[in-house]
Structure formats: C-alpha cells, structure tokens
Design a protein around this nucleic acid. Structure first.
Lengths: 127, 127
DNA sequence: ATCATCGCTTGTGTTTTGCAAGTGATTGCA
DNA sequence: TGCAATCACTTGCAAAACACAAGCGATGAT
C-alpha cells in the first residue's frame, strides 16, 4: 500500500522524475529520434535504408539503436514486408502518431525563430 | 550569386540540414535544455541554484554550459540582480518564451502516453 | 576574522556518439 | 549455377559528451 503523500511524486524506472516533460524527453529528447518520426510521419518512410537517405545523415548504428528503443517504448512496430523475410518495415503506433502535434510545433518554432530554415518538402505537409 | 536550385536546400553553419525540425533539435534537442526552459517558464526560476534544485538533478557543469548556449542562441538573457554584482538572473527572451507551446505539447504527450506521469505542480500551469 | 552562499571551473572516469568497415541473408540476372 | 547487388544490420575504434566530486573567487552576514 502506497502512502498518499508519495503518489504523484514517484519516479518510474529509469526516469529522472515524474514530470511529463522530463519523461517525454527521456523517450524522444535527443537529436535523432524525432527526425526518424518526422521521416515516418511526413515522408511516409518505413525502411532502414530510407531513413539513412535523409539529409541529416544518421549513422547506421545510431539508427539501429533508435529504432530498437522506439520499438521497445511502443512508438514504432517492426515487421517483415513483401515476400522477403529479412526486409523490415517500421511503422508508427498510435502513440507514435500522436507525436505529430509535437513535430508540428517544432517545425513552427524553427521556421519562426531560426533564420534560413525553409524546407519546401515539408511546408505543405506541416500546414 | 546563388543558383535558384540551391536556395531552400542550403545548410546554415553547424546545422545538419535546413529542415526547421532538425534545426530546432540542434538548438534544444537534448535531455536538459528544455527542462531549464520549463523551470523558467512554469516555475519562474531565474537563478543557477534554483535550477540545480529541480528533481532531475542536473550537474553544475552541464547547467553552466546549457545556460551559456541558451544565451548564445538568443533564447535567454543573463544579468546581475539585486545589489550583488556576482549574482546572476537568467530570463527568457521572446524566442525563449515562444517555446511555451512546445513545452505544453511535450507535457500533454507525456501525460497521455507515458504511464505514471503526473505532476501536481505542473497540471494547473499546463491546462 | 570567519563563515556561508552563489555561480561557477576543473579534473577524472564513464557513457554515448560518429565514422568506417564488415557480415549474412537474400534477390536478380547472365 | 555462379556472381554481383541490396538490405539490415553489427563490430571496432577514436572522439565527444556526460556525471560526479571537489575546489575557487567574490560577496555578505556575524
């Protein structure tokens, strides 16, 4: 039985605090994870090689590890596609898709506050 | 004279691409920066020691370096306060304040998608 | 004069990242 | 049937970032 005074102030395993902002940052607060989600959401990418092709040039080991933790955290599902047993398709779950609003805020803030950010390929998708 | 085909696809110094999401992540895409902004925005913190007191327990050298780059990127201003010339007050600029919407999205996504995130002290502020 | 507070810096060891190369399971093609 | 190409990774290694603890210089209070 947990004391009432402790409820709401407890930390979940591996998290720095119970703050929803801090917890969200623990899951997607790094330089690469949200770019993978961006590629899935705005560009419809699903394959390892497609993510590698983005202009930010993520390296293969980082991509593999990020996809693994995205899957472990329930934001992405991994499944074979076509008739190739080795070829994998990564897709957003409901939780993953619900990051779209966050991505749009990032895009909006970047466009409004960072000079020379302009991406023709995203402009229509982010409106 | 720059070719039209290059415009909109160029990279600014030190950035991975011209995508506004990637650029925004270059500025605030790490585990600590947005927590400092959170403390400034939601809790009204302004001093070094106050940021250290947050439950996530940032270390002093990381805090100092993040405050320095926040200032360098024009998101925060630093000024002495009171009659102590050594005591500093950190405050959000207009660009920094405009991160509030992003923070709210983070909080909302965390509350909806991560179990056991609940912070009484933020709930009223994020509604 | 001594002590505490504030805002840091410095040193040290660990963890994470970036980069290049390689691996194994196919698949397409001659 | 052989052989190169593709895809999804893994491995190795150096560089950078991070966490932790200690210390430092300026100020103010006692």
């Amino acid at each position: 039985m947990k004391k009432i005074s402790e409820r709401g102030g407890q930390k979940a395993a591996g998290r720095r605090s119970s703050c929803p902002i801090a917890c969200a940052l623990d899951l997607v607060g790094d330089k690469w994870t949200l770019l993978i989600v961006r590629d899935m959401h705005y560009l419809g990418k699903t394959r390892f090689e497609e993510f590698l092709a983005s202009p930010e040039k993520i390296s293969t080991n980082i991509l593999a590890s990020r996809l693994k933790t995205l899957e472990a955290n329930g934001l992405v599902t991994k499944s074979p596609y076509g008739n190739h047993s080795q070829r994998m398709s990564y897709e957003l779950t409901a939780s993953g898709k619900s990051l779209a609003g966050l991505l749009r805020r990032f895009a909006q803030w970047g466009l409004e506050n960072i000079p020379e950010t302009a991406t023709p390929e995203f402009k229509s998708a982010t409106k």
